[in-house]
């Protein structure tokens, strides 16, 4: 007979093994899907199932990436786009939180602002592009402004709602200690909505990319959005697709970084 003391541990080991196996299966399939996609793309392009001039091919894309990386031109474009996106993302989020706080500080002010916020939220922000360019010039400032503008209103609305959804009894407790409205905000409202703020960060990562790429479409002489438009104009779709691949990679990295930040912030706060 097997020793009784071991069975608990054995069960635990078996459970751990199962979890590991499941994880391995999922990752294997994810990689297989990626490889299948790339493989099919390559084959389809070589056998002219799709027009290689329009849809390029993975080998072509890799070649473009390497040659452009080697002469340093691509790095420059990546740097400028990343800088614009991160700046737009941070400014959009911070200004949104600031606006939400101002709205929370005065119920009357928030009532007055309500219809304007609805209109600004409904309006496609990229339509303001030409005005931004006229006002802020054709440099990176207007592109950053676009990246920020696209996320600022939705951030304001989401965070303001989160502020209002905090259990009023927390405010009641603080009021019974004689807290001012600012103290209520600092001690209860703001920390209680931190998770909501972090989840808007994730949304804003995607939005800032939209704003910056559209901004670059309109005006830029540098950046990945510019490369896409340039590639389109000279009919170099390998360049367009290379830029797209880079955008996908960096957007994913940025999203992952924000996710890490979320885990870290939430853990340190509870």
């Amino acid at each position: 007979m097997a020793p009784e003391t071991n069975t608990d541990n054995q069960l635990f080991q078996r459970h751990k093994y199962k979890l590991k196996r499941e994880k391995r299966i999922v990752i294997t399939w994810q990689l297989l899907l990626l490889l299948a996609f790339i493989g099919f793309w390559e084959v389809a392009s070589r056998l002219y199932w799709i027009d290689p001039l329009l849809f390029s091919s993975p080998s072509e894309v890799i070649q473009v990436l390497f040659s452009n990386m080697a002469d340093g031109s691509m790095v420059k474009h990546i740097q400028i786009t990343l800088f614009e996106t991160i700046a737009g993302f941070i400014i959009g989020t911070l200004v949104g939180i600031l606006f939400a706080s101002v709205l929370w500080s005065s119920t009357r002010f928030s009532k007055i602002m309500d219809p304007y916020l609805v209109i600004m939220n409904a309006m496609p922000k990229v339509a303001l592009g030409p005005i931004l360019i006229v006002a802020l010039g054709t440099g990176y400032v207007s592109i950053i402004a676009m990246g920020a503008l696209i996320s600022v209103i939705i951030t304001t609305l989401v965070i303001y709602n989160a502020f209002n959804e905090v259990d009023p009894n927390y405010e009641k407790v603080l009021k019974s200690f004689g807290a001012t409205r600012w103290q209520q905000f600092k001690e209860a409202i703001f920390p209680a909505t931190l998770p909501a703020m972090i989840s808007t960060l994730k949304v804003n990562v995607g939005l800032s990319w939209v704003g910056v790429i559209v901004g670059e479409f309109l005006v830029a002489k540098q950046g990945l959005g510019y490369l896409i438009i340039y590639g389109f104009q000279v009919f170099d779709f390998s360049l367009v697709l290379s830029s797209l691949v880079l955008i996908a990679i960096f957007a994913a990295i940025m999203y992952k970084v924000v996710e890490r930040l979320e885990g870290w912030l939430i853990k340190s706060k509870t």
Binding site: N169, S176, A192
Partner: peptide
């Protein structure tokens, strides 16, 4: 905002953070 009053509610409403 009178310091003289202490309040206890149905739930504790301790701040989890």
């Amino acid at each position: 905002s009178d310091k003289a009053i202490g309040y206890m509610l149905q739930q504790d409403y301790l701040f989890p953070w």
